[in-house]
Simulated assay, not measured.
Amino acid sequence: MLSYPATIPLSSRTLSHLAECIRGHRRQRRSRWRRLDPGRQALLTLAHLRNGDTYTRLAAGFGIGVTTAWRYVREAVDLLAAAADDLATAMERIRKLAYAILDGTLIPIDRVADQRPYYSGKHKRHGVNVQVIADAAGRLVWASAALPGAIHDLSAARVHGIIDALSSADVMTFADKGYQGAGGSVRTPFKRHRYRPKLSRRQEAVNRAHARVRARGERAIATLKTWKLLTKLRCCPRRATAIVQAILVLHRVETSPYS
């Protein structure tokens, strides 16, 4: 098998953070000798998450077995996911925002045996639903656990308690028409109904202004999907939550100079 040098578009700070997490975990477990040191295991994990490299390619590049590569990545992902903020912790930052932007995204997956719950009628494909909260500049603030793709965005937001949390904190939140009826502090555009008059000019103007604000939230989703593994998950859908949470932790380390 041929090999070639490649890069990962991340800073050394992110690599050092993950390596230190792995090193601490090994000390706690009094782990014996392993094929890869903490730094190499961290590099292996980042290559998988950011570049989307398969276990077969990683195993060949790092000179280890495929099963070992899978085990090392899973261990590192679980360590990162355990350090991710829950919604209550994230709300401490969100309530300080001028306003928030709420949107949902579908992360594609391979077909599974029980595929009906994961089929999104909106996107016409199988996947998992992740709710994303962005700030006024479109920066990624928080992402929810993954739910089956058949679940509607509004239902997913309610399951996670996002609507109640944002309303309790009185954070003005902009969302698309999929969140109609959310209530509280969530603002959605006017929606034309089939048997009602057309929208007025004022309502159309409000919708345009609303869309300009809401479009910034797409940047947060784009940021999340710069991690190539999320372009299509080929693992068990139940692992999607841990992967998204791990990526959130790495994103915060990468974007914060004080992490």
Rank of each mutant, 00 (worst) to 15 (best):
S3I: 06
Y4C: 02
Y4M: 07
Y4I: 12
I8S: 11
R13P: 00
R13S: 03
R13A: 05
L15D: 05
H17L: 01
A19E: 08
C21E: 03
H25P: 00
H25A: 06
R26Y: 03
R27Q: 13
R35M: 04
L36V: 00
P38D: 00
G39H: 01
L46E: 08
A47F: 13
Y55N: 11
F62L: 14
G63M: 14
G63L: 06
A69F: 14
L79D: 00
L79N: 01
L80M: 09
A81D: 09
A82W: 11
A84M: 03
D86M: 09
T89M: 13
K96L: 10
L97N: 02
L97D: 12
Y99W: 14
G104P: 01
L106I: 12
L106C: 03
D114Y: 10
R116I: 05
Y119T: 08
S120M: 04
H123S: 08
K124M: 10
R125I: 09
R125F: 05
G127V: 08
G127A: 04
V130F: 00
Q131Y: 08
D135L: 04
A136H: 06
W142N: 05
A143D: 04
L147S: 03
P148S: 02
G149H: 06
A156M: 02
G161Q: 03
A165G: 11
L166T: 11
L166D: 07
A169Y: 13
D176T: 09
Y179C: 06
Q180C: 05
G183K: 15
V186L: 15
T188R: 00
P189D: 08
K191D: 06
K191T: 13
S200P: 04
A205V: 04
V206P: 02
N207T: 05
R208Y: 15
L224C: 07
L224G: 12
K225T: 03
K225L: 13
T226L: 15
W227Q: 12
T231P: 00
L233D: 05
R234V: 10
C236M: 10
R239N: 12
I247N: 15
L248E: 14
S256F: 07
S256Q: 09
Y258M: 11
S259I: 04
